[in-house]
Every structure is written in C-alpha cells, then in structure tokens.
Amino acid sequence: MSSMTMSPRIASWLQATPFTLIMTCLVMVPLAIILAVSFMDYGFAEIIPEFYLGNWTDLFRSSLTVDTYATVFRQLAMVWSITLVLGFTISYYLVFHVRSNMWRAIFLAACAIPFWTSGPIRMISWVPLLGREGLVNQALFGMGLIDQPISWLLYSEFSVILVYVNMLTMAMAGPIANSMAKISPSIIQAARDQGASEWQVIQEVIIPLIKPGIVVGTIFIITAVMGDGFLVRAMSGNQMNTPAVAIMNEINAFQFPPAAAKSVVLLVIVLGMVGLLLRFVDIRKELAR
C-alpha cells in the first residue's frame, strides 16, 4: 500500500484536516464575519460596508445593556442553584440509595422519556397548566384555596424559571450522576468506618469528588440560559429582555450590525465564564475515564 511510505508528519496533518476544515468553515469564518459586521454601519434592512463604531458606543452607553445582563444573571443564578440542588439530590438518590436494578431502570426511564418530545412542545405545554384559566388555578379554585386566579403563574419571571428548571435539571443531574457513579463504594465505606455521618460523607468525600461533574453541568446551564431567547420570550409573554432577546429583536428588525456587536459581547462573556470555571476544575479527568 502506498500509505506505508507516507511520512508520519503528513499522516498527522491529513488526520487533522477534516476537523480543521469544519472548525474553520463553520466556526471561525462565521465568527470573523460577525466581528467584521459589528464594525459596519447600517440602514433600513441593509448593511453599509463602512467602518463605524456607533454599534459599540451605543452598546456601552445604553443602560439597556446593563439591564439585560442584570436580568439574565439573576435568572442564571436562580436556575443554577435550583438545578444544582435538584440534580445533586436526584443523582445522589439514584446512585447511592436505589439498590435494585429494576427501580434504577424505572427512574432513569422517568428521567429520559420526556426527552422523546421536542423542547418547544415541552415548553409550550406549561401554558395550559399555568394560565389564568389553567389547571393549577382551576384546581386551587376548586379546592377553595383562592377566590380569584393567581396571575403570576404564567408570563412572569416565575414561569421562566420554572420552565428553565424543567428543561435543564437533567443537564445538571447527568454529569453529576456520572461523577458519582465513579466513586468506589469502598471509599464511602471507609469514610463511614472513620466515623463520618451521612452528611459528613457528602461534605468531605462526595462533593469534592463530583466537582468536575458539577462544572460540566454548570457549563451546560450557563450556555443554555445565556444563549436562550425563545424560552424567555415565550414564557414571559415578551415582557422580559435578556441579551439574547435583544439580539433576536434586532435581527428581526434586520439591524444586523448592532446585533453582531451584542453577539460578540455575549460570546466573550460566556467564554470568559466557561474559561474561569475550567481554571478551577480539571474536567479532562471527567472526560478521560
């Protein structure tokens, strides 16, 4: 075969070529275009290819920017803390307390089956549940607990957070359960043998050992919440503005250059957050085994 005479150097380059092409064409070039467009002027539904700093000065002068980021960070903090607590609890129960394989399979199926329907449908199906005439209000009314419908159930920050938690808990629970499953039972027994209570085992042994899983889950949550515009718009009834919603609004109005500038800022912030997390925890350990 002719490949037997190929130098290892050339072979390595050939092996790296497909991924390099994909990364270049589908990631690097589009990002470069976005960056370039962010420095261009625009008119009604047109990009004017002239150097223009106005998109950037507007972005940094506008109080809207600060407001949208304040909103999204608040949501991120809430979603992250709730999914972390839920994800940890679910994984801990599944990994350390469910003994029978049958029950473990049933619980895993219960976690997985909702994903058979698409995300938007799972999202929208909350509407008939939470609306003024929705199931929840009707049930509470029927039980005589309220005499008029609760209005903050839908199209509010509550519904946004609730649906985020519904969509993202498994993204947090999955990596955590994966980390937990790698902890050898004898390590837990050794800790018990040393006098640790269940809570001390969690604190001193389990939490330090699942940090990589928590980081992977956190990255999923950060990228999902920071990058989402659809869910916020749908569940807040177009009443909340996050950076991604602002970008979507401008794109819908064909104002591509300011949308590009906002995208660059959002990308830098998200990459910065992920980079910071990876500095503290080595997730390669998690991916390696």
């Binding site: 050898s184 004898s186 390590i187 027994q189 800790a191």
Partner: peptide, 8 residues
C-alpha cells in the same frame, strides 16, 4: 480495605 480505599 482490600483496594486501600484512600480518598483520592
């Protein structure tokens, strides 16, 4: 323990 079970 047989596998030593040290806390890694």
């Amino acid at each position: 323990f047989q596998s030593y079970a040290l806390f890694p």
